[in-house]
């Protein structure tokens, strides 16, 4: 939760793309940790595999989104340089 809120904060308060992206990933990390925490069911029971799978899916989605955002950012920089 703290990661989540920290992520939102720096997402909103930083201008630079790289910082925003790191903030987004921190935020996502916060959400994924909540899922992991939900999966824990005490020391004796095996953890719930469903949230683990959701986190894996979420990470891949976040990686893809970050890649596209970086490419767009690079392109915006190029376009600004040429203008």
């Amino acid at each position: 939760m703290i990661l989540f809120a920290l992520g939102i904060w720096s997402f909103l308060s930083h201008e630079a793309l790289l910082r925003k992206l790191i903030a987004f990933n921190v935020m996502g990390g916060g959400v994924f940790h909540v899922f992991i925490a939900v999966a824990y069911r005490g020391d004796t029971a095996p953890p719930d595999p469903v949230p683990h799978a959701l986190v894996l899916t979420g990470i891949v989605v976040a990686v893809s989104a970050t890649a596209l955002a970086l490419a767009l950012g690079g392109r915006a920089q190029d376009a600004a340089d040429h203008d």
Binding site: V60, V61, S64, A65, A67, L68, A71, L72
Partner: peptide
């Protein structure tokens, strides 16, 4: 989603 990111790039 992964494919969409690549297509976008």
């Amino acid at each position: 989603v992964v494919l969409a990111a690549l297509l976008g790039i």
